[in-house]
């Protein structure tokens, strides 16, 4: 997968909790059998009116967020369906990192298989970021996975946590399956033990 070491980019804000994967990528796009090309369908039912015209009221359609590569939301981001298409869509649209107060488990896992970094920050920190985005057009953050920090050019500097295995996979862009297969002998031994009971 693509690696993630350090990234600086414009922040787009979605001031909503419980953004579910049905919204991130609606079901009509799940019929595809490829992993690519989902970006144009990201948040489709929110980005576009039923007649196909752009919904100017939707956050991500604001011109100022056009080049955003970091998304900040609120709590429980990515809840609901296990569809990994949600992460593929965020990635393909151009997001390298999502910041929230909390994530749903499966979505968080799916992010870590695709090099899209999920960052959990405190409610206060997330609040501050929302305020900064509102106050300053083109507001940028730097997410540094080596130092485990999120910072801006002003005074914001927050630390975050991620388990060491996931961190290593992100930093080096490792293939989880190849890593597991390094332990094929242990899987063999486990399967042997099943036969003997």
């Amino acid at each position: 997968m693509q690696s993630f070491v350090k990234h600086t980019g414009v922040v787009a804000a979605m001031d909503r909790s419980n953004v579910d994967t049905d919204q991130i990528i609606p079901k009509q796009f799940l019929k595809r059998i490829e992993r690519t090309g989902f970006g144009e369908f990201l948040f489709f039912d929110w980005r576009f009116h039923p007649d196909g015209t752009t919904n100017e009221d939707f956050e991500l359609n604001r011109p100022r967020f056009k080049d955003a590569s970091i998304l900040v939301a609120r709590e429980n981001f990515g809840n609901g369906s296990s569809r990994e298409h949600a992460v593929w869509a965020l990635d393909d649209y151009g997001f390298r990192c999502v910041i929230a107060e909390s994530f749903a488990d499966i979505f968080y896992n799916n992010c870590s298989k695709n090099g899209v970094l999920p960052v959990v920050l405190s409610k206060d920190a997330v609040n501050r970021i929302h305020q900064s985005v509102a106050a300053e057009e083109g507001y940028q953050l730097t997410v540094d996975l080596e130092k485990l920090t999120v910072s801006d050019s002003d005074s914001l500097s927050e630390t975050f946590e991620i388990d060491s295995f996931r961190r290593q996979c992100f930093l080096e862009g490792l293939d989880h399956i190849a890593l597991t297969l390094q332990h094929a002998d242990k899987i063999d031994a486990y399967e042997q033990s099943l036969k003997s009971v």
């Binding site: 992993r35 296990s82 569809r83 990994e84 298409h85 992460v87 499966i106 896992n109 799916n110 298989k113 695709n114 295995f165 989880h176 399956i177 597991t180 297969l181 094929a184 899987i187 399967e191």
Partner: peptide, 18 residues
């Protein structure tokens, strides 16, 4: 447990899940 597609691939290839 419910899993994503990359994990489906992982289980197919290794019969294990992290």
């Amino acid at each position: 447990v419910g899993i994503g597609t990359s994990e489906v691939e992982h289980v197919l290839a290794t019969q294990t899940l992290l």
